[in-house]
Nucleic acid binder design. Structure first.
Lengths: 209, 206
DNA sequence: GCTTTAAAAAGTAATTT
DNA sequence: AAATTACTTTATAAAGC
């Protein structure tokens, strides 16, 4: 019995040490990404569960923290792309994605499919758009979903195109390049999604002088 | 029931087109091989032991590639049918023989993986499928297809919104068609197949 | 885990013309 | 801006790091 306690104690202290180090990393990454308190706490809860389940063994704390942050952002409806997160960690995108799949499977997380609408507020504010323009962009995405134009497409690209359309309709001009950069996609993708939206939604885009 | 299907949509009863795209097989020769000797005697081989322990040998028409190891085992990829695979193995051995690499005994051929494509000819609502199917993953940020791990037969399917798909992990051809039959039935039962008159009444923007 | 090989799907990306 | 090439995902064996 004493030995059992001893073993448990040793495991507990190992978990504690790991957590202490991981929380520092979580703080660092969260600051870089300017994440709010709710997302940080969600990520911390997810990471703690991962450590307790022994999912971090053989993996770097950084990659699991990054994956926890990615999941937390999605669950809190404040999504960040894997590329953006990987910009601030040593772990590459592939490794983070691998950890993400592990977390989803092992912790039985129910992560809703990424919704382009959730990308709009952040992208919109980074572009300094009006609330009205953002609402229009969201409405465009909603219709695009109904018309089955979103399946298989990168949600960030869809959000970017909807925002581009909204800026044209609201006369809050932003270049495709500006929007593409903030969305983390190429201008070609914004253009392709944009063309599809204009065609399929039969939008009347005000002519440019 | 069937009547309804007929009336609703004729293409929902057209049979899926299934095609084998690639067969991966291992071939066991009961003898050790000197890869450096093969590299010297057989033309058009690639051998970079620092990079990979296998020697690469390619056949044209059909385009088949073999990875050959010193243990006498090899991996043959690229064939689209069992017959093509068998013919390729014979050709490889004959080519080696003609260049002074003697191989005796009959090779043991084992199919390890069959990759196939199929087309249901009906659009699929991937979001619906993602929520209703089990053992699947759908992350459009990373890949446009829905990845579904089927238990029986034990294969993995990559399903796209167009109704086209990739089936992989099968070891026998019949597993492929079985998998396609199963997924078609399941998607239909779960109402994930898009009937034309379904994506109709949209709210208008203006 | 990685290295190498083949092939498809559809989306995105990086180059080239 | 269109065309080309290339990478994302899946499975699978081989021998070795």
């Amino acid at each position: 019995r004493y030995r059992k306690w001893q073993i448990r104690s040793r495991i507990q202290s190992s978990i504690d040490r790991n957590l202490a180090q991981a929380m520092n990393e979580l703080d660092r990454l969260s600051n870089q990404l300017h994440l709010n308190r709710a997302v940080r706490e969600e990520a911390a809860v997810i990471y703690r569960k991962a450590v307790e389940k022994g999912l971090v063994r053989g993996r770097s704390i950084e990659s699991v923290i990054a994956a926890s942050v990615y999941v937390a952002c999605r669950l809190k409806k404040l999504p960040r792309t894997l590329d953006e997160i990987s910009l601030h960690t040593r772990a590459n995108r592939k490794e983070i994605a691998r950890c993400y799949r592990l977390l989803v499977k092992e912790l039985q997380l129910k992560v809703p499919i990424a919704d382009p609408i959730d990308y709009i507020p952040r992208m919109g504010s980074l572009l300094d758009l009006s609330g009205k323009a953002m609402n229009i962009a969201a409405r465009i995405v909603k219709i695009a979903k109904q018309k089955a134009l979103t399946a298989g497409k990168d949600p960030a690209g869809l959000a970017a195109a909807a925002i581009y359309v909204a800026t044209l309709l609201e006369n809050e001009k932003r270049t495709q390049k500006e929007i593409a950069n903030i969305a983390g996609v190429t201008e070609v993708t914004v253009r392709n999604r944009y063309k599809e939206l204009v065609n399929e939604l039969k939008l009347d885009i005000p002519e440019e002088d | 029931m069937l009547m309804v299907c007929y009336m609703k949509k004729t293409n929902s009863i057209s049979k899926p087109v299934v095609q084998i795209e690639n067969i991966v097989a291992t071939v066991t020769l009961d003898q050790q091989l000197d890869l450096h000797e093969i590299e010297r005697k057989v033309p058009r081989v690639e051998y970079n032991p620092d990079q990979f322990p296998g020697l690469v040998f390619r056949l044209d028409r059909p385009k088949i590639t073999a990875l050959i190891f010193k243990s006498g085992k090899m991996v043959v990829t690229g064939s689209k049918s069992t017959q093509e695979l068998i013919t390729a193995v014979k050709r490889i051995i004959k080519t080696f023989y003609n260049h002074g690499i003697k191989i005796t005994g009959r090779p043991k051929i084992q199919i390890q993986n069959i990759v196939a494509s199929a087309n249901l000819n009906v659009d699929v609502n991937l979001e619906d499928a993602a929520y209703k199917l089990e053992n699947n993953m759908y992350e459009p940020e990373q890949f446009p297809g829905l990845i579904h791990r089927m238990t029986d037969p034990y294969v993995v399917l990559l399903i796209f919104s167009s109704g086209k798909m990739v089936i992989t992990g099968a070891k026998r051809e019949e597993e492929v068609s079985k998998a396609v039959e199963n997924i078609y039935k399941t998607l239909k039962e779960l109402d994930c197949l898009v009937t034309k008159s379904e994506d109709e009444q949209e709210e208008e923007f203006f």
